[in-house]
Design a protein around this nucleic acid. Structure first.
Lengths: 198, 198
DNA sequence: TGTACATCAGTGAACGCGCGTTCACTGATGTAC
DNA sequence: TGTACATCAGTGAACGCGCGTTCACTGATGTAC
């Protein structure tokens, strides 16, 4: 409760302290409030209360900043999905994860778009190198899917379930699915039941 | 084979003849060759061999041109999917449509993105007003789905199948699905069989 | 504990760029008489 | 068939904009002695 404790956060010194993190936070804010088009280097710097050039101390260029924002988004995303895996019944747990997936997309449309935006690279295969990517961050999801189908169908079922939930999210964001927050659960149950008894 | 026949196409008169169509064609070209970022009014005009201002005779603004390009894309898309519905066996016909869906996306990634890009409006419900939209252009798809499930599951199955195929396409475009052109058929069969016997 | 100095993290002005769009125009076309 | 004139479909120069990024700089910090 001493002044020193607060001074770190409130007193604006010449040196920011943790500008890198502040810029990523600002980026998430912009994305949430004004969408992808508004996500410019200058706007992010403005939000962080810093000159337009300051970000270059922490990011090589705009692309690097975007990549870091996407990475943070993925961490949040995985956390939300893992947290949704509460039920003991595997089918129910899987449905919950699917619902969480779609809800995250609807809650953070621009961020979701950035996370899954077209990567220039894209070698195709989901990486297994420990990097934070949608593909290998899905440990919980993958595990649950493999418990409801025979082992030889695990991969097939994984891509089917992932495609379904991702497509539902994408179509919902486009306004092509009626009342998606209400219908996602039923749709997920529909699919999970059929996959499980196949 | 007379010169007159050709003069319509080759002789550049002051008045273009069908600039509106030519601009949309040029837009599709740009999208195919250089992607969404390169799709500017000026570039499209350049391709059509016309001044930067000429498009304004045919489109109110850039957004109107993009909308027309998207519309043409949807027409192509529906045609391709309807054409894929050749098999007599309903399940097989449905699988073929799914394959065509994903192949179209992979063949025209930027156009696919434009077609399904976030609409500012998006009332949610698939329109039934005869307008060309993904939702109601899917007559063939919708019909096939409803033949393989009980009537009371038709809507549920439609959104499930559509979400799956759309998500597979989106993930494939992001490079998150290994060898999607080869694996889409198996994945579609996997889903269709399970939906049909549910 | 004090001081010199290298390094780090920021500033602020300026740039070049391509864009969408405006403006006033001009050449070509079609139609009424 | 000829002509006057309104209308249509294009031109070309210019604008303002916000962007990403460069440049040379300066204030703050940390460390060796």
């Amino acid at each position: 409760m001493t002044e020193d404790v607060y001074s770190v956060d409130t007193t604006r010194t010449y040196h920011h302290g943790d500008l890198r993190r502040a810029l990523i936070d600002a980026g998430l804010e912009v994305l949430g409030e004004r969408g992808a088009d508004a996500l410019t280097l200058r706007e992010v710097a403005r939000r962080a209360g810093v000159s337009a050039m300051a970000p270059y101390r922490h990011f090589a260029d705009k692309a690097a900043l975007l990549a870091s924002i996407a990475e943070r988004g993925l961490e949040m995303f995985f956390a939300v999905i893992a947290e949704a895996d509460g039920a003991t019944d595997p089918r129910r747990a899987l449905v919950q994860q699917g619902v969480a997936y779609v809800e995250f997309a609807l809650d953070h449309p621009a961020l979701f778009g950035l996370m899954f935006g077209h990567k220039p690279a894209g070698p195709g295969l989901p990486a297994d190198d420990g990097a934070v990517t949608p593909a290998n961050g899905f440990v919980t999801f993958r595990r649950r899917v493999s418990t409801i189908v025979p082992p030889d169908q695990a991969e097939q079922a994984l891509f089917t379930a992932w495609s379904f939930v991702h497509g539902f999210a994408a179509l919902a964001l486009d306004g092509r699915i009626p009342d998606p927050r209400r219908t996602i659960r039923g749709a997920a149950e529909f699919l999970v039941e059929r996959m499980a008894q196949g």
